[in-house]
Write a protein that binds this DNA or RNA. Structure first.
Length: 423
RNA sequence: GGGGAGAUACCAAAGUGGCCAACUGGGCCUGACUGUAAAUCAGGUGGCAUACGCCUUCGUAGGUUCGAAUCCUGCUCUCCCCA
């Protein structure tokens, strides 16, 4: 199956520049840029990573470009207002972390289609201002740059020259890669279309070379909100920022519609396999097969098979049994596993001997909830449970509440668990 | 350089001397219903306090007043128009 056909059935194709289909009938080189604006990539970036993966599987050579230089400038695309500049050292730290993450997903072996990892800081940092203005700037009109959506949308709110110039840097990258790496295709999210076509235009004027573009639709949730953000913010690929368990739960909690889309976008399952799973799901929706497969597959690829099994077993223990009685069936080994996957806090056993008010337990003693008011509100709305039983205001927690003489299982609402370990 | 408008809680946006911890919408949290789904409905959403209530918050620093998000002054920042 051709790359475009593959991306098309997966719903990963938004815009394609003229002639791309024909161009891709031969082995080509293509790139996607990742600006190191944070210490980790997140699930939103995973779409672009998968584009590169498909590109490589179709026999082409992918370049993952770290935007070490462009991150210092700031991309105005999709931003409603000017961003503060990132600290130089932060960008350096970020790019190392992100390079390591990217390396997990592509095959960097030396063959003809072996992936490359480059950093635009390597060439942009040494470009001299006057040279840039004379050699590059002269080929691009302000009128052209102003017409880009990313710029137009910002004319009211304000846009610094720095961010305005971003598209020129990205355009230069594309041109540079075409000169030095025979890179003829740039991919990215739909919001990058303006920046990408700027590169096509620049290369055409500078070298007469024809370059190509394809973009993926921006993933949005069924309610129209940005995908990959949950209550706590971004879902990161770094386990220190988003634990494997929470990462797993993120996928489990997707709606049916989202899960269908994500299965196509984020896994490498074939069309036949995806459709078979959807068929199964329709027969037994309560088993949440799509979500299970998705969570297992992604947690395995982003973290490890071991992390995925752990998360799955923990979830099965917590969500499988409804009542507090069942909880008593869990043995110590179960808890030993759970304590590594769930957020947890510890408490001094002696403070339980005398009895501890539930509010104190969940706030200052363990840090599960941020304030006493919050705790009180939850108690009043029946939203806080201890060992899977709702607790009321004024509840005193004692040593006999400890499971296996060691653990307390706290819950905010249905899905947010917190384990207290008594030492 | 000159003139005008503005800065309110996570976001948007009311409020123009006491009834304002601050209308409303979105978001978020919790509950009901369910399949750890969607849709829907209900409640909540600065901190401390069981509670009466107390404390901090309307760009920032002062001032007027019994009393200010609301009036005055300085400062910072943003947008618009003219040069």
């Amino acid at each position: 199956m051709s790359l475009l056909a593959e991306l098309r059935w997966r719903g990963m194709l938004a815009d394609v520049s003229a002639g791309t289909e024909e161009h891709l009938t031969q082995c080509r080189t293509g790139y996607i840029g990742f600006d190191p604006t944070a210490a980790s990539l997140h699930v939103g970036n995973l779409v672009q990573i998968m584009m590169l993966v498909h590109f490589q599987r179709a026999g082409h050579r992918p370049i993952a470009l770290i935007g070490g230089a462009t991150a210092l400038i700031g991309d105005p695309s999709g931003k409603s207002e000017e961003r503060p500049l990132l600290d130089r050292q932060a960008v350096i730290d970020n790019q190392q972390a992100i390079a390591a993450q990217l390396a997990r997903f592509l095959d960097f072996s030396s063959g003809r289609d072996g992936a490359l990892l480059l950093n635009n800081h390597d060439w942009l940092s040494s470009v001299r201002l006057l040279d840039f203005l004379r050699d590059i700037g002269k080929h691009v009109s302000i009128n052209y740059m102003m017409a880009k959506d990313a710029v137009r949308n910002r004319l009211e709110a304000g846009l610094s020259f720095t961010e305005f110039s971003y598209q020129l840097l990205q355009a230069y990258d594309f041109h540079y890669l075409s000169e030095h790496y025979q890179c003829t295709v740039q991919m990215g999210g739909a919001d990058q279309w303006g920046n990408i076509t700027a590169g096509i235009e620049l290369a055409r004027r500078l070298s007469g070379r024809q370059l190509f573009a394809l973009t993926s639709p921006l993933l949005i949730r069924s309610d129209g909100k940005k995908f990959g953000k949950s209550e706590e913010g971004n879902i990161w690929l770094d386990r220190r920022l988003t634990s494997p368990y929470r990462f797993y739960q993120f996928w489990i909690n997707l709606s049916d519609e989202e899960a269908q889309k994500c299965l196509r976008t984020f896994t490498l399952l074939s069309q036949a396999e995806v459709e078979a799973l959807e068929q199964q799901h329709r027969q037994r929706p309560e088993q949440r097969i799509l979500q299970q497969v998705l969570a297992r597959d992604l947690t395995t690829r982003v973290h490890s098979a071991d992390d995925a099994s752990r998360a799955a077993r923990t979830a099965a223990l917590l969500f499988g049994n409804g009542t507090g009685e069942d909880l008593l069936q869990l043995d110590e080994a179960d808890f030993d596993m759970i304590r590594d996957t769930l957020p947890h806090g510890s408490i001094n056993r002696s403070s339980l001997e005398n009895g501890l008010d539930i509010i104190r337990l969940v706030t200052e003693e363990t840090g599960f909830l941020p304030s006493r008011s919050e705790a009180r509100r939850l108690l009043q709305s029946q939203g806080l449970s201890l060992n899977k039983k709702p607790v009321a205001e004024g509840q005193i927690v004692r040593a006999e509440h400890l499971l296996h003489n060691r653990y307390l299982l706290l819950q905010r609402g249905k899905k947010n668990y917190f384990l207290v370990i008594a030492d």
